[in-house]
């Protein structure tokens, strides 16, 4: 093992030379090529994946934005319709109230008018009756009892209660 032997040196040179040549020509080149290709491939896939993810993120953001917009719009619509409904109800109520008031007022007016008319009529009738009674009194020369009877008779024609209810 410590003896110098040129033969072994020559054999080593030869075999190691063959090994270097074969490794250089047939192993290292293709292996490096394959590893580079795989690295490039992985890089490419990773880039593509990153791109896809970015795209998906962008779409998601977009959808989220759209959804938020839609939700806001729906809210707006709801609110405006609610407001419109409220307004309409208010208007309707006010209108109805107004109308009711008007009807009531009309009725009051009518009642007043009728009352007034009735009173007017009553007055004229009273006047007529008074005139009649006066005439009777003047012409008949009645006593007090007769007078009283005549007035009652005249007044019986004038049904006061009927005056209040009929008109």
């Amino acid at each position: 093992m410590l003896v110098f032997s040129p033969g072994l040196t020559v054999w080593t040179l030869l075999t190691f030379g063959i090994a270097v040549f074969v490794l250089w020509k047939y192993a290292f080149g293709p292996l490096q090529h394959m590893i580079d290709a795989r690295r490039a491939n992985i890089q490419e896939s990773m880039d593509a994946a990153a791109e896809t993810r970015a795209e998906a993120q962008r779409l998601l953001d977009e959808y989220k934005q759209t959804l938020a917009n839609v939700r806001g719009e729906a809210q707006d619509i709801l609110e405006s319709s609610r407001a419109a409904g409220d307004k309409a109800r208010h208007e309707l109520t006010a209108e109805a109230k107004h109308q009711a008031e008007r009807i009531v007022a009309q009725a009051h007016e009518q009642i007043e008018r009728d009352t007034r008319a009735a009173l007017r009529e009553l007055r004229t009738q009273l006047a007529d009756l008074t005139a009649l009674a006066t005439q009777k009194v003047v012409t008949g020369g009645l006593g007090a009892v007769e007078q009283r009877r005549l007035i009652d008779e005249a007044l019986r024609d004038l049904d006061v209660e009927q005056l209040g209810t009929e008109n």
Binding site: P30, L31, A37
Partner: peptide, 14 residues
């Protein structure tokens, strides 16, 4: 080495 190198260069796959 030669067998290994030639074998690996033949069967290289992705």
């Amino acid at each position: 080495i030669v067998v290994g190198a030639l074998a690996v260069s033949r069967i290289l796959k992705a």
